[in-house]
Design a protein around this nucleic acid. Structure first.
Lengths: 184, 184
DNA sequence: TGCCATCGTCCACTATAGAAGACGATTATC
DNA sequence: GATAATCGTCTTCTATAGTGGACGATGGCA
């Protein structure tokens, strides 16, 4: 029953930070946690308190339980559907499911966007990662900086250099799409 | 983005402990965390470290992420299916879904037990709670102390005084059943 | 009534989480 | 090739997490 999550949190924290292209200083500013402490946590030289974990997950825009669920799957090779962490935005109904076992250099997300919902995504979250969007069902209007892409079922878009983006579902049915990303 | 989980952890920890009828001293012994510290955490006078949270969730037999997911839903009244914490035992495929929004005096669990799987449950986990088992699909052999109950689809069993129990699915199909429990 | 046993909280002390800033290493810019 | 950012780690210090044990309250039980 011995279950120290310090190591798992360490590797996951580093992954989340680097996936966004953030330095220690930048994550420190966004989260309000000192960069010295973040450095220690990432090297598993400290056991963060619940308060600090809450600040860090908040900076990533993730509920703490989802961040930990991702951390716990660190060494798994197979991710059963029932074990995949799901996060639903209670306001919009936007749902994001982490399909890939964690710690893989390639991550797959299964996203469902309700009809009429609009989700912005800041450029800073895209830095240092290559990603593609593939629509499984419904329609998706994707604004990439000044450019607007109209995607329908089966379409796949490769994202360019980092820009502020917006996901929007113009249809009447929920849009379901895959986000696949790899880090630089 | 301010998201201090200390209060939510406090109430959830107390619920999990009391649902099992454990005193501070008993949880302290099972988890290896001092009872003084557990008392502080339950009164949200301390922010537990990841290490301590790992020991506590381990004592409850829950992954840390599930414990936190339950804590996060503290003040919700509606629990969307996608938000309900699910835990799957990787060895047996046993799946448990927490249906009720947390902090309610009545809790509903949606359990799926694969064919041929056997799950023991110690008497200590039952103390101070009243519970019923209702089979939705498949068959379930439920051993309650020395007594064996054979349940089929639609059957509902009211549990007696605390005893060591075993869930077993003798059928070829997965068994799906509801566990409803309330605290004393 | 008196005596244990057990409950949760409080106290004194130690270990460590966490903040602020210094430091060497690396890379970009001219 | 010198200067200046910026990176992550290390150092110092303070706040607090965490432990062991004492304490008053409560509840059987003789």
């Amino acid at each position: 029953m011995e279950n120290d999550p310090v190591q798992a949190i360490a590797t996951r924290l580093k992954i989340e930070r680097e996936a966004r292209g953030w330095s220690l200083a930048e994550l420190a500013e966004r989260s309000g946690v000192s960069k010295a402490m973040i450095s220690k946590i990432e090297r598993s030289e400290a056991s963060p308190t619940a308060t600090v974990l809450g600040r860090l997950s908040g900076a990533f825009g993730l509920p703490l339980s989802v961040l930990l669920a991702l951390a716990e799957r660190a060494q798994e090779r197979v991710a059963l559907q029932a074990e995949q962490p799901v996060w639903t935005d209670p306001e919009t109904g936007y749902t994001r499911r982490a399909v890939s076992p964690a710690n893989s250099p390639l991550e797959i997300l299964d996203v469902s966007l309700p009809s009429g919902v609009r989700v912005p995504y800041p450029a800073s979250a895209f830095a240092f990662q290559h990603q593609q969007i593939w629509v499984l069902a419904g329609r998706l209007d994707f604004q990439e900086g000044p450019v607007m892409h109209h995607l329908a079922e089966g379409d796949c878009l490769l994202l360019g250099p980092p820009a502020d983006c917006v996901f929007f579902n113009p249809g009447k049915e929920p849009a379901r799409y895959v986000v696949a990303l790899t880090r630089r």
